[in-house]
Each structure stands twice: as structure tokens, then as C-alpha cells.
Simulated scan of single mutants.
Amino acid sequence: MNYYDRIQKSIEFIEDNLDTYIEIEDAADSAKMCSTEYLRFFYAVTGLTVQDYIGKRKITFAVEDIKKDRSDANKLASKYFFSSTEAFSMVFRTNTGYLPSEFLDQNIHYSFPKIDVRDKYYDEQDPMLLARFPDIRLLKHIPKMRMASYTSYGNEPENDACEIIMEYALENNLLCKYCSFRIFGFTVPDSIKSDGTYGYTVCITVGDEHIFKDGPVKELIIEKGQYVVATTTVSNIVETWERFKEWLRLSGYLHGSHQYLEEHLLCSRWREKEPFNDIEINLYMPVKNKKSKE
């Protein structure tokens, strides 16, 4: 299950439990992510923190209750498991602009719809192709990304490149709890040598305001492009590329000229006890429509 599907699964979990107290750890478990990875990736793909999303959805249903039977704040705070009436009222006012007791008199409408990550990111795909390759999803165009990048060479250059990037990210406050950073990597084209060494680039997204200084970490621009994505492990990358090739053969798409990408949840996993070959990644193959002029 790719990272987008995992976030959507967690959204379904949240939607099923809006009338309970939702533990972040439980939502993360439903996405098969640790809490740190989950909080960051949820924000990266939805533009909202998990807590903000939960609050907006609970207030949406609370508004319906107020309109239906004029439920008061005490009852609604209890029904939707807020820590107190005051906490509920504060979240209510933050989202609607009014206290619960004031809302009906304003003659306004408030509703925050359920997020569908798949609708936001997935492009239309042939049903027969999807049935044959359920793990491969065609994405809409990914916008241009500005990156801080570092390239290392060696037998396992991923580790060194990751270490440099994570140090840089810490020094530049790129890893804050609710930052929407994403971590990508790729093997340097034509870098594999007969002795098994090769080059690998690790990069982390940065905003337009980020200023690069002299040093080993350089700016990298990943241009806008369309991809197909699948989740795989390091040991199964070659097998997944073969499935991509078969997908291409049967689809209306060609291999694109833009950069292929591997997306990682957190680089730190490369330094932990998890066997390197078992680490999961999202693998992105660049594609272009056969009808495209590009």
C-alpha cells in the first residue's frame, strides 16, 4: 500500500471514530506508520495537521447537531470527546468564527468536507489496467519541487547522503513537527561502476524562502512531471521496475524524461536495526502520455 493510500486509510479510521477520542497513535497505526512519520506525511499531502482535520470534521457534525436540535456546548463537547466545554467552544469558534451559542443567530453555513487523498493525487486510470496492477497508481502531475540535496558515492552511499541531509535539515530547522517536508532519493544516472560502487542523491523539499549557503548541500530543482507510483522494498526495486515496464507496455503512456524518484518516510530508518533491504519506499516512475507533444 503506497503512502497516499495509507493516509487515506487513516482518514477512513478518523471518520469512523469522530464520536470518540482519537489517539494519534491509533490513527498512525491504521496508516502503518510511526506517529512522527504519520504526522509529517499527513500534513504534507493534505495541508492540514491531523488535529486540525479531526477538529474541522467534528465541528462539521456539531454544527449539524446545533441546527437539528439546538444542542448546547456541554452536550456537544461530551458527544465529540473534547477535553472540556471550553476546549470545544474554542475549536468551534476557530472554525466557524462564532461560539456555539451564537451560531444559529448568524444565519451562516459551515461544513468541512471529508478529504479524499486519492481524488487529489490520482489520475484517471484504465479499470482493466488497475485490476491487473492494483499496486501501481497513476498520479496527476507533481508540481515542481525545490530541494536541498547531497550526493554520495560508494558501496552504500544512501547512508552517507542521508546523514549529511539530516544534519543539514536539523541545522536549518527543516524537521519541525508540522513541516510538510518530503524526502526523496535516486541513483545517479550512469554512476554504477564495475566494483559495485555508485552514486546516490538524497534530497529534502524546501520552501522558496530557504537560502542556500556555500557547502556540500546544493539546491536541486525537480521539474513538474507525471508519475506512476508503487510501494516496494529496497530488495524488490528491480522487480517493481519490471512491473512498471509491463504497465507501460499495456498503457497509453511512455517512459518520461524527468527524474525518477524514491520517496522515503524518514532517513533515520537507514541507520536503525531494520535490515536495509527490507526498508519500504515509494517508487516513482516518470511517464508521459503518448498523445503528449512533450
Score class of each variant (00 low, 15 high):
R118D: 03
D135V: 02
Y227P: 09
G47W: 11
V45I: 15
L39E: 10
I192C: 04
D26A: 10
V45G: 06
D16C: 07
A230H: 03
N282D: 15
Y284I: 02
Y260I: 01
A73V: 12
E102K: 13
E158M: 13
D105L: 13
K288T: 14
E239W: 09
Q259M: 13
L39Q: 13
S30P: 00
N282Q: 14
N155C: 02
E209A: 12
E23F: 08
I211Y: 08
Y3N: 10
D126N: 15
Y122E: 10
A230M: 13
G215S: 11
Q8F: 03
T46R: 05
E102W: 05
S191I: 07
N17Q: 07
L283Y: 09
A148R: 01
F181H: 14
C179G: 12
P157R: 04
G55D: 02
D116E: 10
D208C: 03
H109G: 09
A148E: 06
M128W: 07
K291G: 13
R118A: 05
V117I: 15
C162L: 12
I24D: 04
I66E: 05
Q8I: 00
V206C: 10
I279F: 03
R70E: 14
D105P: 01
E274R: 10
I165P: 04
K290R: 15
K273Y: 08
E209F: 04
E209T: 13
A73D: 13
F276L: 14
E242F: 12
E223F: 05
P113T: 03
V117D: 08
H264I: 03
V202S: 07
P100R: 06
D190C: 05
T201G: 02
R269T: 14
Y200D: 05
S235R: 15
T205Y: 09
T231D: 14
I281Y: 08
D195C: 06
K193P: 00
S30I: 00
E124C: 01
Q106M: 13
Y153V: 10
M90Y: 10
H258Q: 14
C179K: 08
E262W: 10
Y178M: 08
D195W: 05
D29F: 02
F42C: 00
I183N: 10
H210L: 03
Q51F: 05
K67V: 07
I222Q: 04
I11E: 01
D29M: 05
D116H: 07
L139N: 08
S268H: 05
R269P: 00
